[in-house]
Design a protein around this nucleic acid. Structure first.
Length: 589
DNA sequence: GCCGTTTTCGGCCCGACTGTTTTCAGTCG
């Protein structure tokens, strides 16, 4: 049973309570949902935490849920949940994945039409809706029947509640929409907000806030967006669209003098907003997108900037990437938020694949070393590290490999002479083989300035063996960086299991860095593990893993991961000047 | 059922929008 299954179980229990008696179980419902969120977001598997006796370190898991989970891992079921879910037909639960379906609506329909089979319920419901039988039900009508047909069709086309796009993809959708919005004379300011502004690795909906003196006109203009598929809703202050790719975009509008509270409200996260409002309530204030309401006299103060909004609560402004309710409010109250890294702090990139003919077993870059250097100069970098994949082991003898690397070094020496304004490192991305050895012999390794080591094969090892393998690879004296440490590919495959405590500990003791890889499908190390690692004192590098010059622009996404992990400049090696970096690579300059 | 820099008991964010109603329930963020 993995985290996703457990979260689903908790949500189903919450839904069952909502169906049976929502008022009576109101706070249990919230508690179950909170715990489900925490488990779904956790990088550690709940089962592992259970084995280590650390289940209660998940916020939202208290004595009762802990006991339930313990029972689940021991026996495979939770007796209490079986009681809670008793009497709720199993066919209710699959409907909860469909947008616009909540527990009550799903239950009413399943109950009335006596749907028994969870595997066919969606199809069964579609047939009933098509025959017009829903419109006559009490509490339903023609419009809601049409909506049900709509959302089921969309669901079958792959539009589910929890399908998320990678960050740069969402960014592109937002850019395109912003360009459209800015053409309207009524739009004074327009910003992407929500998870996009907080720079999450994957984005559900694209949220946009607009400041305007004419909300009606802006909303009307918005719903006429040329790429719209359908208007989901439209009111006086907000609207949602479904666009042709199946993504949701939400727009919220306020006059300019309320833009600060609007930004704050719509940026979230939900957990941050809830915690912030609880904090404000204790001081006698109630928060909303309209401003800050004084509970004593009922007056509402407006804020045109977010900074003023936070300041008036006695808090310093909190960077959006930190707004996840993981301690930021307490620190903001003490004015002790760390100064997190900025993309301008980056002075180089160690993970660059040029098209130098290195005969690797993986992919080669598309552009020449000189092209990559030119791009690095345009980014005002001080140094660049070339790190193509190691020459394929199966197709070369070790002498041949060494010859290729020496040839590459000659090329690099020439480039150093031709490019005085930038320094160059001769690195290599080397596979850690299944047996823990690196795919390069020592003699070849010695002609390099350093190695990035990474896993590219045999992913399905158990945690213990994989940890052993990674540590063996990383212990090579030339190995300085563990590249894309989890191996995850967003929306494609989860990362492999590692004992992170051991990895962090090893990295600190042996002066190794963990990479934050900026590649959109990777964003690896993930932000939550970055946050963990930095508490141990681990050092990082942020790289782009570029295979073409334009990929070097992706650095901002890696920096976003670092910001979400609360890293400061001092935690990241490639914010340092060249001399300090050479010291770290153990090179004499 | 969870949680604590006023609390180990007594609270628990705040609002938008839709559809079916004639004041509200359900869903969403």
């Amino acid at each position: 049973m993995n985290n996703k299954d457990i979260a689903r179980l908790l949500r189903n229990a919450a839904a069952s309570y909502a169906i049976k008696d929502e008022k009576k179980h109101y706070f249990q419902i919230i508690a179950y949902q909170k715990a489900a969120d925490a488990i779904e977001d956790s990088t550690a598997e709940a089962k592992d935490l259970y084995k280590e006796g650390k289940l209660d370190q998940l916020s939202g898991v208290g004595p009762s849920i802990k006991q339930h989970l313990t029972e689940l891992f021991k026996t495979g079921k939770i007796t209490h949940f079986e009681t809670v879910m008793g009497g709720v037909p199993p066919a209710v639960f699959p409907l909860l994945d469909i947008p616009s379906f909540g527990p009550k609506k799903a239950f009413k329909l399943v109950e009335h039409f006596k749907f028994k089979n969870p595997d066919t319920v969606i199809d069964d419901l579609k047939k009933v809706a098509g025959s017009g039988k829903i419109a006559t039900l009490e509490g339903f009508g023609k419009k809601s029947e049409e909506l049900i047909l709509h959302v089921i069709t969309e669901y079958e086309d792959g539009i589910k509640k929890n399908v998320r796009m990678v960050l740069p993809f969402a960014n592109e959708i937002a850019e395109k929409l912003l360009a459209y919005l800015k053409k309207s004379p009524d739009v004074m300011e327009a910003f992407p907000l929500g998870s996009l502004r907080r720079m999450l690795s994957t984005i559900g909906d694209v949220d946009i806030a607009v400041a305007t003196k004419n909300p009606e006109a802006v909303l009307e203009y918005f719903v006429n967006y040329p790429y719209k598929e359908r208007v989901i809703e439209k009111g006086p202050a907000s609207s949602s669209l479904l666009i042709s790719g199946g993504q949701h975009i939400d727009l919220m509008v306020q006059p300019p003098d309320r833009f600060g509270s609007l930004l704050q409200h719509f940026t979230g996260s939900k957990a941050h907003n809830i915690a912030l409002r609880e904090y404000a309530l204790k001081k006698g204030f109630s928060l909303s997108e309209y401003g800050i309401k004084n509970m004593k006299d009922g007056t509402v103060k407006k804020y045109n900037s977010e900074e003023k909004f936070y300041n008036s609560l006695g808090l310093s402004w909190i960077p959006p990437e930190m707004r996840e309710n993981t301690g930021e409010i307490v620190l903001a109250a003490k004015n002790e938020l760390p100064k997190i890294v900025d993309v301008k702090d980056m002075k180089g990139d160690f993970h660059i694949h040029s098209n130098f003919p290195i005969e690797p077993s993986h992919d080669l870059g598309r552009n020449s070393m000189q092209d990559m250097l030119n791009k690095a100069k345009s980014l005002h970098y001080e140094y660049l590290g070339f790190s193509e994949h190691n020459p394929s082991v199966s197709k070369h003898t070790s002498q041949q490999v060494k010859a290729i690397l020496e040839k590459r070094n000659i090329k690099i020496e020439q480039l150093k002479k031709d490019n005085k304004s930038i320094r160059i490192f001769s690195l290599l991305e080397v596979d850690i083989l299944a047996n823990g050895k690196v795919a390069l012999d020592d003699e070849s390794a010695n002609v390099l300035d350093g190695m990035l080591v990474s896993i590219h094969s045999a992913f399905s090892m158990d945690k213990k063996d994989m940890t052993k393998r990674v540590l063996a690879g990383l212990s090579h004296p030339k190995a300085k960086i563990l590249s894309h440490p989890t191996g995850r590919l967003l929306n494609q495959r989860p990362g492999y299991d590692l004992n992170w405590e051991e990895i962090f500990d090893f990295a600190i003791k042996n002066n190794k860095a963990l990479e934050i890889n900026s590649w959109p499908q990777r964003l690896d190390l993930p932000d939550s593990l970055v946050r963990e690692a930095v508490k141990y004192g681990v050092k990082f590098v942020i790289d782009t893993d570029s295979h073409a010059t334009e990929h070097m622009n992706l650095m901002k996404y890696g920096v976003a991961v670092a910001r979400r992990g609360w890293l400061t400049k001092g935690d990241i090696l490639n914010t340092n000047r060249y001399n300090k970096v050479t010291e770290w690579f153990n090179l004499k300059s």
